[in-house]
């Protein structure tokens, strides 16, 4: 991979994707709040959703948290992996979660393509999301199996690369010598970031954590009606 290509793929594109994600998400939130929804289809079809949604969501959420943990606490992850048995445990857990998520994703894709009612409410972007996610999970599983052990070497490669992006001094050369499948994993992640605000993925930022703290009831008074007469 030439330096120019690397600059485009690992620097220009990620920045464009992140900018797009932030700007468009804010605009959408402000200008088109009605469209921000998880657009559940459980009312129309429930059985396949059970076998798809639960494995996919829990698998992908836990793996995402694992990635974020590596990003923010690389030293801790490296220390954990210092003992082989702990490394194996982490890798097997990660792989199992990825397979679980992949199985769920396949069910969801199958459901979306074959259930008439679900097809009636499927937009092209719904399929794009599922396909990019499939690429993302597949490349991740490929690496976990073919380039052992990701949680070990990524601390020295991917973590510095991501931080270099975040600190605005990008170092694309870190990823350049690595196999295509890792590069694909990184690029498809930024594809997900880029399409994030244009798809139902925005429901990620609507996670209703304030629910845990709010009182049960909400009474809203537009304006006190003054006593008249």
């Amino acid at each position: 991979m030439s330096d120019t290509v690397a600059m485009i793929v690992f620097v220009a594109f990620p920045y464009a994707a992140l900018t797009l994600a932030i700007v468009v998400t804010v605009l959408r939130w402000k200008l088109a709040p009605f469209t921000v929804s998880s657009i559940s289809s459980q009312l129309l079809e429930s059985r396949k959703l059970f076998w798809g949604s639960i494995p996919f969501h829990w698998g992908i959420v836990l793996i995402l948290l694992g990635h974020l943990a590596t990003l923010f606490f690389p030293a801790t992850v490296a220390w954990w992996n210092g003992v082989p048995i702990r490394l194996y445990a982490l890798e097997i857990t990660g792989l199992a979660l990825a397979l679980w998520a992949a199985a769920g994703l396949l069910v969801l894709l199958y459901r979306r393509l074959t259930t008439a009612r679900i097809r009636a409410v499927t937009t092209p972007m719904d399929l794009v999301v599922l396909i990019v996610l499939a690429v993302q999970i597949a490349s991740g599983i490929w690496m976990a199996v073919g380039y052992r052990f990701g949680s070990f070497w990524s601390v020295g490669v991917v973590v510095p690369y991501v931080w270099s992006l975040l600190k605005l001094s990008p170092r694309p050369e870190l990823l350049q010598p690595f196999p295509f499948i890792l590069q694909l994993h990184v690029v498809s992640f930024f594809v997900l970031v880029a399409i994030f605000p244009f798809t139902r993925l925005v429901h990620l930022i609507t996670l209703p954590l304030p629910y845990l703290a709010r009182p049960w009831q909400r009474v809203v008074r537009m304006r006190h009606i003054e006593p008249v007469g």
Binding site: T206, P210, Q217, V219, V220
Partner: peptide
Amino acid sequence: VAACPSGAIYKRGEDGVVLVDENQCRAW
């Protein structure tokens, strides 16, 4: 109202009508 994780449903103070704010509803 109590079950809505997004807090999109509310009871109107002046006349007690229970309404869904569809801009806040996230389809949970």
